[in-house]
C-alpha cells in the first residue's frame, strides 16, 4: 500500500435521522486512480452514505477529508464545486432533449453579448460528442440526437463523461449497472476503467459482485450501516464476497436449502422466512 494521501477519506462518520442511526463509524479511503466498490444489500446504508458524500446529508459525527483537509458540504452544489460528482442510474439525463443540450444543462455555452445571449448549439454538440467518444462510445456521432434514443449504458456514459468534463475528481456511481443487460453493463464498466485511468477516484456502488470484481481495486461491504469488511483486490473470492453481503449467511447453504425444499415439495419454493 502506498503512503499517498487519499483523495477522499471518511473518518468514523455516523449519520442518524432523529433516533434512528443509519451509519455507524464509517471509515473509508479512496485514492486518485482507484475504484472503491461499495457493496451491500438493499437497506445496508449505501444510499445514505453516498448522499452524505454528495452533500445531501451532513454527517452527525465524524469527518470527511479531501486531500487531507476536513471539508463540510452544506448542499450538493458545494460538493460538486469541490469535484464530487454523483451519477445516478438514469439521473442527469433528459430523454427528450438532445445530447448537446443534455450535456450542458446549467452550464450552457453561449454566443453573443449582454442580455442577448444565444445558446451555442454547434459548440455544445461538438464538445459533448467529443467528450463521449473519448470515453470509447463511438456510436454517438450526432449531438442533436435525443438522449431517450440511447441505451441505458450510453446514458450512463454520457452522464459520466459530463461529470468528468466539468472537473469531477471523485466520481460516485450509484448502481450504474443495476438496470442494464450484460452487454450494456460491460459498456459502463469500460467507462469506469477509463475514468480510473484518467486519475479519478471512483466510488462504485453496486450489489452485483461480478461487476464490482471487474473494476474494483478496493472493496468495502456495508451491513446495517457499518463497514463489515474492507479488503483489496484479490484478497477474497466472489463467493466469500457474496456471503459477506448476505449478512454472513452462506449463499451456498441458502441455495442448497432452497433446492432441498423444492425436491421435497414437488418443485415449489419455500415460503419466505420472517
Amino acid at each position: 500500500m502506498t503512503a499517498r494521501m487519499p483523495l477522499l477519506e471518511l473518518r468514523k462518520v455516523d449519520k442518524s435521522f432523529g433516533p434512528i442511526d443509519v451509519l455507524h463509524e464509517i471509515s473509508l479511503k479512496v485514492h486518485a486512480g482507484e475504484v472503491l466498490c461499495l457493496l451491500g444489500d438493499n437497506g445496508a446504508g449505501k444510499s445514505t452514505l453516498i448522499k452524505t458524500l454528495a452533500g445531501v446529508h451532513q454527517p452527525t459525527r465524524g469527518e470527511i477529508l479531501m486531500d487531507g483537509q476536513p471539508v463540510a458540504f452544506a448542499n450538493p452544489r458545494e460538493a460538486s464545486d469541490r469535484g464530487i460528482a454523483t451519477v445516478h442510474q438514469f439521473g442527469g439525463t433528459y430523454p427528450l432533449m438532445s445530447i448537446g443540450r443534455n450535456f450542458f444543462v446549467g452550464a450552457e455555452p453561449t454566443r453573443g453579448w449582454g442580455p442577448f445571449k444565444v445558446f451555442d448549439r454547434k459548440k455544445a454538440n461538438e464538445i459533448a460528442v467529443k467528450a463521449v467518444r473519448d470515453f470509447g462510445i463511438t456510436r454517438i456521432d450526432d449531438g442533436d440526437r435525443l438522449v431517450g434514443g440511447l441505451s441505458g449504458g450510453e446514458r450512463q456514459s454520457l452522464a459520466i463523461a459530463r461529470a468528468v468534463y466539468f472537473g469531477a475528481r471523485v466520481l460516485i456511481l450509484d448502481e450504474p449497472t443495476a438496470a442494464l443487460g450484460v452487454k450494456q453493463a460491460a459498456h459502463v464498466l469500460r467507462i469506469v476503467n477509463e475514468a480510473k485511468k484518467r486519475g479519478l477516484a471512483v466510488i462504485f456502488i453496486t450489489h452485483q459482485v461480478m461487476h464490482a470484481m471487474a473494476v474494483g481495486d478496493h472493496f468495502a461491504v456495508l451491513i446495517r450501516g457499518a463497514v463489515a469488511a474492507d479488503f483489496r483486490k484479490g484478497e477474497k473470492t466472489r463467493e466469500q464476497i457474496a456471503d459477506l453481503m448476505a449478512g454472513g449467511e452462506s449463499m451456498v447453504s441458502l441455495e442448497a436449502s432452497i433446492e432441498g425444499y423444492m425436491e421435497r415439495h414437488k418443485g415449489h419454493v419455500p415460503p419466505p422466512a420472517h
Partner: peptide, 23 residues
C-alpha cells in the same frame, strides 16, 4: 435561442437533476 430555454426543458424533464446541475 437563449440558454434559459435549456433550463426550462431540463426543469420539465427532471427537476431534481436540473437542480443538481446548477439550474
Amino acid at each position: 435561442v437563449s440558454p434559459i430555454g435549456n433550463w426550462i426543458f431540463a426543469l420539465g424533464g427532471d427537476r431534481e437533476s436540473a437542480r443538481n446541475a446548477g439550474v
